[in-house]
């Protein structure tokens, strides 16, 4: 066979190839929303919201304990349990959901199919974050509604019972009765409680951003979860930890710098703890709320940028 055929003129049949597609936007909030919505669907179909049923049961049960305590104390206890549970749910869910979902996409190669569509990596990360936070927001609002209902019904029950009792005994002046009732209302349903819920949400947002950052380079979900929880705990002793280290290394500039960097990289979760005071009926300090909002936004930006730095060049 010396006469080689001329390569491929007839061998490759000339069909009419398809025309080019439409142009795609460089960045699209629509794609972020699509990924967020799919994350919400995924979490919902993992039966996340069943947790709300359990929560409702606990709060109603606590509300109906007949504890021998003053009405104000009882209301305070319901709030402590309910808001404590809400807070734990928010941050723990932020860690676990984020740490499970992204590595799962990598492992199942679902990420290949997503990233081979015209989707930017930043859009993927933002979408995942928004999806997890969306579920947390909806859960918190639902839990808040459940607990507001319980608190309100107990509060009005206590107030009317107390009022009747005091009037019946005929020993108190109107002003005394008023004062006693306001003591109960102090522990009842107040608009400020919403700020405590907001604080839990903001804390969860920071926790989720930190976890996303960890899961961009960690190789296992378990590692991500453990390190996130560790950082969470350290972040609660932020002041103590950093003052200890800064004190120990007074003379060494390099170590001081390092400590400062670490101080920025470990979010200060103590920022959010003023909400415990709100739950206990203390007044809201507006400055603290603004500070919390600003720092939450700052942490989100920093950790998303750091995640992107790792994720943009990551190979799968």
């Amino acid at each position: 066979m010396s006469d080689d055929p001329p390569p491929s003129t007839e061998a490759t049949p000339r069909r009419t190839p398809r025309a080019a597609g439409k142009a795609v936007p460089i960045f699209s909030l629509g794609r972020v929303a699509t990924i967020a919505a799919s994350t919400v669907t995924q979490l919902v179909r993992m039966k996340t919201f069943y947790f709300l049923l359990a929560f409702a049961l606990v709060v109603v049960a606590v509300g109906n304990f007949n504890i021998p305590a003053t009405p104000a104390k009882e209301l305070s206890m319901i709030k402590k349990v309910a808001f404590g549970t809400m807070d734990i749910f928010a941050w723990l869910f932020a860690i676990v959901a984020t740490a499970l979902l992204i590595p799962k996409d990598v492992e199942d190669r679902t990420l290949y199919t997503i990233l081979s569509k015209p989707v930017r990596r930043v859009e993927y990360l933002l979408g995942k974050l928004c999806g997890v936070l969306g579920v947390i927001a909806v859960s918190l609002v639902a839990m808040y509604a459940i607990c507001a209902l319980v608190i309100y019904s107990r509060e009005s029950l206590f107030v009317s019972a107390e009022y009747e009792a005091m009037v019946a005994s005929a020993q108190y002046t109107a002003a005394e009765i008023e004062e006693q009732l306001s003591l109960i209302q102090q522990q009842g349903l107040r608009a400020e409680l919403g700020i405590a819920v907001l604080a839990s949400f903001f804390k969860a947002a920071v926790v989720a951003a930190v976890t996303i950052f960890l899961s961009t380079f960690a190789s296992s979900s378990l590692f991500t979860i453990i390190v996130s929880i560790l950082l969470f705990l350290i972040g609660h002793a932020h002041h103590m930890a950093s003052s200890f280290w800064l004190h120990e290394s007074e003379n060494n500039m390099a170590v001081q710098m390092l400590v400062k960097v670490i101080k920025i990289l470990i979010p200060n979760y103590q920022l959010f703890s003023f909400s415990e005071g709100i739950v206990q009926g203390e007044a809201v300090v507006a400055a603290l709320v603004w500070q919390m909002g600003g720092l939450t936004a700052g942490y989100l930006v920093v950790f998303l940028l750091l995640s992107l730095l790792v994720f943009v060049d990551k190979e799968f």
């Binding site: 439409k22 799919s38 190669r109 679902t110 081979s116």
Partner: peptide, 21 residues
């Protein structure tokens, strides 16, 4: 390039899609 990816359909090896969908 994101424009290049708009022209490509990709089926990876042993793909798994979201099972819940």
């Amino acid at each position: 390039d994101i424009r290049a990816r708009n022209e490509i359909g990709f089926l990876p090896e042993n793909p798994y899609f979201y099972k819940h969908l």
